[in-house]
Design a protein around this nucleic acid. Structure first.
Lengths: 346, 346
DNA sequence: ATACTGGGCGAAAACGTTTTCGTGTTAACA
DNA sequence: TGTTAACACGAAAACGTTTTCGCCCAGTAT
């Protein structure tokens, strides 16, 4: 077991100075061709690679991006990571992942762990608990220390950082309008509580689509789920709430859900009640997960282009890291949504 | 924007030496109480945190684990990462993620990027291309340089590292026996090509369960899918292959699939052919993804306990990193599978 | 013979820590 | 008063790089 070789060892072995070795390896013209070749041959033989940590210390940059997300077992987030990793890799960056588990404390802890020199910048999506507490001091402190942040999906507006979001509002109106075009007269909405900004925006999109149609808004048709405690076995509760929604709106012939799970459960309830999809009732979800694609019937959905979001976020961050120029001017990139038609709509 | 403060700056400000500051902050008795308090107060005021990179360089350890996986948009792998992250975090370690995308070259590249000091050890699952080429030099080199590796799920046996695997063989026999117990007389198998070790083992489990029953093995009942080109739109091909399987075995009344997607598509085909699930034909998949849980009908499945695998892998690695003693003796941990009964079986 | 020029190389600083080993001052003791 | 011990602190090395600057020597010009 031979440990990795260092410049110092090469220098000693070849009886030259460390500086000479370093310069020779970097093909400096200061060094004679003879010495250069000798050093390079030796280095190659021993498979020399510069130590990253030493380089990081010297250059005061790590070429590493910190990513903090609420959850990784989640199609959307893992796809974003994929996008980040893909782009980061092409630019020679590594990606270090921290999970907040939707917890404020873990989010803060994770950021503190990474902000002490381990990374050059953050890409993150805010945890639900943080959104609820509205305590953003850790973001501000990080930014004030000169470490750039790029937020995606769950962002807060008045913060000095770049943001990448999906056009939730527009995506929702698109979906609801689509249902209306397909003949739906009574469209239900299954959404989250308002503190999750994406839930709020999607709700607003629904509302404006309905109102633009000249139809009056029926509060009975809107179901707001409290998913703050993310326990797996509240799925039963979810199902009974949706059951209730159907019970209260017997003539409901369309449902827009802000995520695919809600949509799937709703379809299940509809089926139980003997409704045919999409003949009697149509469904659209929001997100581009696997569930939608392989559900029966497959679910028409508003695609968020998660991977593109990740790539864009990484690209924004790396740009900011490598061009110090454009300080004080922050971008807010909006990723367009697409409506993917499948079999849950006519 | 004030950059992070260093020992040197504190020393200058308080007119003491760097060593004094360092010792004062670590509560060394060498330093008088007066000075200690003064330094600590100042440090607290300016929110001093030691620079991780400098510490890494000094200690020659980074407290960071490198994870290389073939794909992250995948329930199994993301759950493993979750387990790794969870355990690593409690031990003060960070996790840096690299994706091989099932490509040999990217796997090698990613490992090289990280093996130069950025991390203390690897946790990885081998890419399909690497398995096919059977070129493991990069693993051996890494190990020879004194950097420990823990492999999970897709492992190779004759390598000096710890391994965490799921008992694929036993899981499969369990599943097939379950189908037999439930009255299935003609059980189909949908599996992958043999070079994917987990596919091979699961196939063997199927075979031995059938043979143990005294039944003769019918090659017609076994469908091996070539998923080496992982293009999304070969799903149609997949479907038609499964269609063929049904066509060739009209009396098939049970199907065991080595992953949940195969099982779902098979259920879809069965439904198209007018078969009722589970009355006419029963299904079991392998994996614990979301699809199984929310499919219609929900899929009985062999659960792999992915998160537990991740935790175990991280724990093995960290143990090895922190106790230099037990070199040369490597563990192979087997995670038991569980059969989760849902509605695709009687 | 003297003064330049420049090629080839090494010493040293710097990045931010921790830690070992002095060293100077003071108080106590003989 | 002289020796010693304890106390409080600082200098410096080390981790592995890169880079600036200076030095030596040979060759060329004067």
């Amino acid at each position: 077991m031979k440990r990795k070789i260092t410049l110092k060892q090469i220098a000693k072995e070849l009886d030259v100075s460390i500086s000479t070795v370093s310069k020779a390896l970097r093909n400096s013209i200061e060094i004679s061709e003879d010495t250069r070749e000798k050093v390079q041959a030796f280095a190659k033989l021993y498979n020399y690679r510069p130590n990253n940590i030493a380089l990081s210390l010297k250059n005061r940059k790590t070429k590493t991006i910190g990513v903090i997300i609420p959850e990784i077992v989640h199609h959307f987030f893992s796809k974003v990571i994929k996008g980040i990793e893909l782009l980061a890799n092409t630019k020679g960056y590594n990606v270090i992942v921290g999970l907040s588990n939707e917890s404020f404390d873990k989010e803060v802890l994770n950021m503190e762990m990474l902000a002490n020199g381990s990374i050059d910048g953050f890409i993150l999506s805010i945890s639900k608990e943080t959104l609820m507490k509205q305590d953003y001091h850790h973001f501000n402190e990080t930014i004030n220390q000169g470490m750039p942040i790029v937020m995606f999906d769950r962002v807060i507006n008045d913060l000095n950082c770049d943001k990448v979001i999906v056009d939730d509002y527009e995506g929702s109106t698109k979906a609801v309008n689509f249902l209306i075009d397909k003949g739906c007269k009574s469209i239900g909405l299954i959404t989250t509580m308002d503190y999750v900004s994406v839930g709020r925006l999607r709700t607003q999109g629904y509302i404006s689509a309905i109102e633009n149609q000249g139809a009056e808004l029926n509060a009975e048709l809107i179901l707001k789920i409290d998913d703050s405690n993310t326990s797996e076995e509240q799925i039963d509760i979810l199902e009974s709430q949706i059951e209730q929604l159907f019970e209260n709106n017997k003539n409901m012939d369309g449902v827009f859900a802000v995520n695919e799970l809600y949509a799937l459960i709703a379809m299940k309830v509809a089926r139980k009640r003997g409704l045919k999809i999409p003949e009697d009732i149509q469904f659209i979800g929001f997100t581009d997960g696997v569930l939608s694609k392989h559900a029966t019937p497959s679910l028409t959905t508003v695609s968020q282009h998660a991977q593109a979001m990740g790539e864009k976020a990484a690209s924004l961050l790396i740009n900011r890291l490598e061009n110090e120029e454009d300080e004080e001017h922050f971008e807010k990139v909006i990723i367009e949504t697409d409506l993917i038609e499948r079999n849950s709509t006519k």
